[in-house]
């Protein structure tokens, strides 16, 4: 993907002239800043980037990027991205969405974009709340969450974005955290270079309506106990002193302390390239406070992309039978010719 002779781009080149309008302290600022950094580092010309979004706080994102951008309608961004990528495989297409946009109103499209493996990068800002509509519970809000529309506590079981992405046969599935700057940058970069649909869940703090919901993953005091960094080929170890790990007990994961008869060899070795997403699925079901929550790449496998397969059908058909000409198109089984002399029927009758 990187081309050789490119002007060096800086994050500033990716900043549009529009004032950023998120609330002060919103996690979106960090994601925007890291995204500009990543874009500048990819070696891809700026005009090749397209950011497509739906509706919500996160979906204002394209306005702040000095690239091509399309702020579409609620939940449907993956559909526009699919059409664009099919028409223009040369573009690097990002979809910016949120938990309401991507998993509630747009759940259907998310599933199908991932299933088809369209080469688009979907970044889902998960703040477990509806921000733009001023604080109602979202499909990722935890049970009991009290909001304006759930004053007695939410009674709906939350949906797990990573679990959904895996179930939809996504070829790249990752999670990261808004303020974990290096990890966020690295995760976005890996998504950018993945060939196929990439799904990245970002834990994003909504300062106004759901402040601190991910604090256990960001607070310096406790985060190392609560976050499990996934690394390819490495055992699942976490904890301030890196003395805890995750072991499989039958089909269930369990937290174990290293030493005391448990060695590193007993732990799950992370394999993002596993043919089956079984272990990734197990990891996606690990939630605070019972477990540390895994961040990093859950799954990264190769599969032909939708637009490649589609455009290959066009090429193959042309190769097999030649490029279709209109003259041929108009033929059918039965063509008849009316000669000048034949045009001799009677006039119309009643």
């Amino acid at each position: 993907m990187p081309a050789a002779t490119l002007p060096t781009l800086t994050p500033k080149d990716f900043a549009s002239d529009q004032d950023v309008r998120w609330c002060p302290g919103c996690g979106d600022y960090s994601i925007l800043a890291q995204m500009k950094k990543v874009c500048a580092s990819l070696g891809i010309p700026r005009e090749k980037f397209v950011f497509i979004s739906g509706i919500g706080c996160s979906s204002r994102f394209p306005y702040y990027m000095n690239t091509y951008g399309f702020h579409t309608i609620h939940g449907r961004a993956p559909t526009f991205a699919t059409g664009l990528k099919v028409a223009r495989p040369d573009l690097l297409v990002w979809v910016i969405t949120g938990d309401g946009d991507g998993l509630s109103i747009g759940g259907n499209h998310l599933l199908h974009a991932l299933r088809r493996n369209v080469d688009i990068k979907i970044v889902l800002f998960n703040n477990e709340i509806y921000g733009l509509t001023k604080g109602q519970y979202s499909p990722t809000s935890r049970l009991g969450t009290r909001t304006k529309s759930s004053p007695l506590g939410s009674i709906e079981n939350p949906i797990r974005p990573i679990t959904i992405a895996l179930a939809a046969e996504a070829t790249f599935v990752a999670r990261t955290i808004d303020v974990d700057v290096n990890h966020l940058t690295e995760t976005l970069r890996r998504a950018a270079f993945h060939k196929g649909s990439a799904f990245v869940e970002v834990y994003q703090n909504c300062k106004v309506f759901n402040d601190g919901v991910f604090e256990y993953t960001t607070d310096k005091e406790v985060k190392s106990e609560n976050v499990l960094y996934l690394e390819q080929g490495k055992p699942l170890i976490f904890g301030k002193n890196r003395d805890k790990g995750i072991r499989l007990n039958g089909l269930e994961p369990e937290v174990v302390e290293l030493g005391k008869g448990v060695s590193v060899d007993d732990l799950i070795i992370h394999d993002e390239k596993a043919a089956e997403p079984t272990l990734a699925f197990v990891l996606s079901r690990m939630y605070h406070p019972q477990f540390p929550e895994p961040v990093g790449v859950f799954r990264a496998i190769e599969r032909p992309t939708f637009e490649d397969l589609l455009n290959r059908q066009v090429e193959d058909a042309i190769k097999a039978k030649g490029r279709g000409k209109l003259e041929e198109l108009f033929q059918s089984e039965d063509i008849w010719v009316v000669e000048e002399a034949e045009a001799n029927g009677p006039a119309a009758l009643d």
Binding site: G83, L84, A87, H109
Partner: peptide, 11 residues
């Protein structure tokens, strides 16, 4: 959506 996305791309 896909049709409009394609048009945005020039198809």
């Amino acid at each position: 959506g896909a049709a409009i996305g394609a048009s945005f791309g020039g198809a």
